[in-house]
Computed example of a mutant assay.
Amino acid sequence: MQVKPKKGRAKWKPPLTGWTMCKVGVTRNKSTRLAGGGWVLRNERGVVICHRRRACSNVCSIDDARFVVILWTLESMGSQRISNVVVAGEFAELFEAVERPQVWPSFLH
């Protein structure tokens, strides 16, 4: 049985041989200011190598939640000595802020 991706979602594409794919997700509850995030690391065949999840309190915005989770994800990759990683998720603004910081002055801190 083949699972079709939901409308508007891109189908998972494997990374190049020798690379891994880290899919990251984030959520936040406005009223409680709680955020949660998780990541799953897969090889080029789609086999799960490892995964983690984390909760954070007192998170002011979804952008703050994304920043905290992507930072934690990248620190996790480093601490586990995982290299050659493609990171995927809804982080376009953060990645653009790294690539073009002059356009995103609010992220300079």
Score class of each variant (00 low, 15 high):
residue 1 M to H: 05
residue 1 M to N: 08
residue 2 Q to M: 05
residue 3 V to P: 02
residue 3 V to T: 09
residue 4 K to E: 08
residue 4 K to T: 06
residue 9 R to A: 04
residue 10 A to Q: 14
residue 11 K to P: 04
residue 11 K to N: 12
residue 12 W to P: 01
residue 12 W to D: 10
residue 12 W to V: 04
residue 13 K to T: 05
residue 15 P to K: 11
residue 15 P to H: 09
residue 15 P to W: 07
residue 18 G to V: 00
residue 19 W to G: 05
residue 20 T to E: 04
residue 20 T to Q: 11
residue 20 T to D: 03
residue 20 T to L: 08
residue 22 C to D: 01
residue 23 K to L: 10
residue 24 V to E: 11
residue 25 G to Q: 01
residue 26 V to E: 04
residue 27 T to Q: 14
residue 29 N to E: 15
residue 29 N to Q: 14
residue 30 K to V: 08
residue 30 K to G: 08
residue 32 T to Y: 13
residue 32 T to I: 03
residue 33 R to F: 12
residue 33 R to W: 13
residue 33 R to Q: 15
residue 33 R to A: 05
residue 34 L to M: 15
residue 34 L to T: 03
residue 35 A to Q: 06
residue 35 A to P: 00
residue 35 A to G: 05
residue 36 G to Q: 07
residue 36 G to K: 04
residue 36 G to D: 06
residue 38 G to S: 12
residue 38 G to M: 10
residue 42 R to V: 01
residue 42 R to G: 10
residue 43 N to V: 01
residue 43 N to W: 09
residue 44 E to C: 13
residue 45 R to Y: 14
residue 45 R to Q: 11
residue 46 G to D: 06
residue 47 V to F: 12
residue 47 V to L: 15
residue 48 V to T: 15
residue 49 I to M: 12
residue 50 C to V: 00
residue 51 H to K: 07
residue 51 H to Y: 13
residue 52 R to H: 13
residue 54 R to I: 11
residue 55 A to W: 14
residue 56 C to V: 06
residue 56 C to Y: 15
residue 57 S to C: 07
residue 57 S to R: 15
residue 57 S to Y: 15
residue 58 N to T: 05
residue 58 N to E: 14
residue 60 C to E: 15
residue 63 D to P: 04
residue 66 R to D: 06
residue 67 F to Y: 12
residue 68 V to N: 08
residue 68 V to P: 02
residue 68 V to T: 13
residue 69 V to E: 03
residue 69 V to F: 06
residue 69 V to W: 05
residue 70 I to S: 02
residue 72 W to D: 02
residue 72 W to Q: 01
residue 72 W to N: 01
residue 73 T to C: 03
residue 75 E to D: 13
residue 75 E to S: 12
residue 75 E to V: 09
residue 76 S to A: 07
residue 78 G to V: 04
residue 80 Q to I: 01
residue 81 R to N: 02
residue 82 I to L: 07
residue 83 S to E: 05
residue 83 S to H: 08
residue 84 N to Y: 10
residue 84 N to W: 08
residue 86 V to K: 14
residue 87 V to P: 00
residue 88 A to S: 12
residue 89 G to T: 06
residue 89 G to R: 04
residue 89 G to E: 11
residue 91 F to C: 05
residue 91 F to T: 02
residue 94 L to I: 11
residue 94 L to S: 08
residue 95 F to Y: 13
residue 95 F to V: 07
residue 96 E to Y: 04
residue 96 E to F: 04
residue 98 V to T: 14
residue 98 V to R: 00
residue 99 E to G: 11
residue 100 R to P: 03
residue 100 R to S: 11
residue 101 P to D: 13
residue 102 Q to P: 01
residue 104 W to K: 03
residue 104 W to I: 09
residue 107 F to H: 05
residue 107 F to Y: 08
residue 108 L to H: 14
residue 108 L to A: 14
